[in-house]
Amino acid sequence: MVVVGGGVIGLTTAVVLAERGRRVRVWTREPAERTTSAVAGALWWPYRIEPESLVGEWSLESLAVYEELAALPDETGVRLVEGVHAGTRLDSLGPWAARVPSLRPAHAGEWAAGTALWARLPLIDMSAHLPWLRDRLIEAGVVVEVRAVTDLAAVDAPVVVNCTGLGARELVPDPAVRPVRGQLVVVENPGITTWLTAVDPVWESSTYVFPQPGGLVLGGTAEEDDWSQAPDPTVAERIVERCAALRPEIAGAGVQGHRVGLRPVRHAVRLEREELPGGRVLVHNYGHGGAGVTVAWGCARRAAGLAYPAA
């Protein structure tokens, strides 16, 4: 079988399939380090993803895996880090929130004022996690090949799993999947050890600060139907300004780099099985919006079950 796509969804799906004893090949248009997944700030949290009725279960399954992987942070890139979701209330979240053990209203000492939620959640360093996934595949005997696919139905395999993200727009084709552009700034960390997200109606998107091993990741934007992958200096300045308003020690921190990624947003994740001529099977697993990392393991298990239903 072939998994098409080498981002976090494709690699995780391939890991699940391979470790269930399937012979798997991964075909990816570009190396994992050049995918949208590599740009992600990667805090576990369901963001810009539907349908809510299913996302909660996928997210919780993935949370359990990341909590295990956090035992080896240097290898897996997964750490459990404390932080605050400012401007978020428990009653604004789905039923899944009640099953996140550490999630609770923040105390005054954890957030200065207003409504906020405190949690200890997985924060994933994608520069370590993606290579770890790839190494796990290699250990399982999976070949990861940089190879462009122009026709899913022409892939020579009895089972094909489509994990192409935004690429599905042209490849399927599926015009329902579209880009939501996210821009980040990486600065030197002045000593911040907790993450922070803040929802402010004045701004077009949330503001967040994620302490990663390689620097402090500042965000962000959510620009719908914007295909530009070039960093905008004006937007970068505004991101730093917003973050410094929340954490003043960020002001003056040296800029280390800029990142831009295009989230593959869809009205609902497409996770379904399609029968092809000749008895072949095509499974779709794409459209995870801003929560690919958050739901990766849950969706991978569903995709594996669709590819090889239990007898």
Rank of each mutant, 00 (worst) to 15 (best):
E68S: 11
L63F: 12
A71V: 12
E61I: 06
S53F: 09
G77P: 02
V81W: 03
W44N: 02
R25Y: 08
E57I: 04
E68H: 11
P31H: 09
D74W: 15
L63V: 11
P51F: 08
T36A: 15
A86G: 15
V78S: 02
L60G: 04
W45V: 10
T35W: 07
E75G: 00
E68W: 09
P51W: 05
L43T: 06
T35L: 10
A71M: 07
P73A: 03
Y66D: 01
P51R: 09
G77S: 07
H85L: 15
Y47H: 14
V81Q: 11
V65C: 04
G87M: 08
A42V: 11
L54C: 03
S59R: 02
P31R: 10
G41F: 05
E82Q: 12
T36C: 14
T35M: 07
D74L: 15
T76M: 05
A40V: 11
G56H: 03
E75N: 00
V26R: 03
V84F: 09
E68F: 06
G77M: 06
S59V: 10
S59H: 09
G77R: 07
S53C: 04
T76E: 01
A40Q: 05
A38Q: 03
E33T: 14
I49L: 08
E50Y: 12
S59T: 10
E33D: 13
A86W: 13
R34A: 14
R29N: 01
V39S: 07
V81L: 13
V84K: 00
A71K: 13
E68T: 13
R25C: 11
V65M: 05
E52P: 00
W45K: 01
P46A: 11
S37G: 06
Y47A: 08
D74V: 15
S62E: 03
G83S: 09
P51Q: 05
E33F: 11
G83M: 06
T28P: 00
A86S: 14
T36F: 10
L43I: 14
I49Q: 00
G87C: 13
S62G: 07
P73K: 06
E61C: 03
G83F: 04
A71T: 13
L43V: 14
V39P: 07
Y47N: 12
A71Y: 08
V84E: 08
E61G: 03
A32Q: 02
L80H: 01
L43R: 04
R48D: 15
L54S: 12
R79K: 12
E50T: 08
V65H: 06
T36G: 13
G41M: 06
L60F: 10
T36I: 05
A40W: 09
P73L: 09
